[in-house]
Each structure stands twice: as structure tokens, then as C-alpha cells.
Computed example of a mutant assay.
Amino acid sequence: MFILSLTYLKSNDEADRHMEPHMAWVREGYAKGWFLASGRKVPRTGGAILAIGDRAAIEAYVAADPFTIHGVAEYDITELAVTTTAEGLEILKR
């Protein structure tokens, strides 16, 4: 599993200008079966995505995020070897 942590490099106003294409990118990540959960950080300094899949594919996909392309946010990708989950969350062990 991967934790994709986004940190805004630009203002929230600038992030809002690119939010629609970013959210289309997020929806596509879900459609591919890679994204499991996502949301904004509180306070709003970026966001986070829980993802599964091949690291190289995830890294390439992150590079195609409109937030990355337009310099709105940078990603920190952390790989987590999940060994224990609550019932129903076994998919996180992939």
C-alpha cells in the first residue's frame, strides 16, 4: 500500500483553479482500482491518498496529476507493508 501525501506549494486559490482537472485525475485513479481513499488535510495544506498497485505505475500516475504538472503540489510517496487490518480492510495488504 502507498500513502500519497500532497503538500501545496501554491495558495489554496491557485489549488482551486486546478481542482476540477485534479479531481478528474483522482476519479480515474479510483476507476483504475489504485485509489482506496482520499481527502484534504486539516488544516488545508494539501491532501492524502491511500493507493495500491505497482510503485512505478503509481509514480508515473502522480507525475501526470494536474497539481504536479502545474506546480500546485508536491507528493511524498510512502510505501507501507500492511500486516494487520481491521476486518474488511484486507485489500490494504496488497
Rank of each mutant, 00 (worst) to 15 (best):
S5V: 14
R44Q: 15
A24M: 13
E90L: 06
G71C: 03
T68L: 02
G39C: 07
P66G: 10
Y8I: 02
H18Q: 06
L89E: 00
D16F: 11
E74L: 08
L89Q: 05
D65K: 10
G53T: 13
A63N: 08
W25L: 09
A37E: 05
E20A: 15
K41G: 07
L92T: 08
S11H: 01
I58R: 03
F2K: 08
Y8W: 07
V72C: 09
M23V: 14
T84A: 14
V82L: 11
S38L: 08
L6D: 02
E87N: 13
G88A: 12
E90N: 01
L50S: 11
E79I: 09
I91G: 05
G39R: 07
F2E: 04
V26A: 04
G29A: 11
G88K: 13
I52V: 15
L89S: 06
R55A: 14
A56K: 14
K32W: 07
L50E: 02
V26P: 01
K10N: 02
L89A: 13
D16M: 15
A37C: 10
L4G: 04
Y8H: 08
M19P: 01
F35I: 04
V82K: 09
M19G: 02
H22W: 00
A63E: 12
T84C: 10
K93E: 04
S5I: 15
A31M: 04
T85E: 01
M23A: 12
I52M: 12
A81G: 02
G88Y: 06
F2N: 04
E87G: 13
I77E: 06
D54R: 09
V26T: 01
F67P: 00
G29D: 03
G33N: 04
P43R: 10
A31F: 04
V82R: 09
T45D: 10
D76S: 10
L4E: 00
A24K: 15
Y30I: 06
M1K: 08
L50A: 13
L9N: 10
L6A: 10
G71W: 00
I49E: 01
R94H: 14
A56D: 11
V42I: 15
G47R: 13
E28L: 14
G47Y: 11
M1Q: 06
S5D: 09
A51H: 12
K32Y: 09
A60K: 11
A24Y: 06
A48V: 13
H22T: 02
A48P: 00
G46H: 03
N12Y: 09
G53W: 14
Y61D: 02
P21W: 00
I52R: 15
R55Y: 15
T84Y: 13
R94E: 14
K10Q: 12
D16W: 05
A63T: 05
G53M: 10
D13S: 14
A31D: 11
L9I: 01
N12M: 12
G46T: 04
G29W: 08
F67K: 05
G39W: 09
A48K: 00
G71T: 08
G33R: 08
K93V: 03
L92F: 12
E14R: 14
M1C: 10
S11R: 06
E87P: 07
G47T: 13
V62R: 04
H70E: 04
R27S: 07
E28T: 05
Y61K: 03
A15S: 03
I91E: 08
G33E: 05
A73E: 03
E87C: 09
F35A: 03
T45F: 02
P66A: 13
G39M: 06
G29K: 05
A81Y: 11
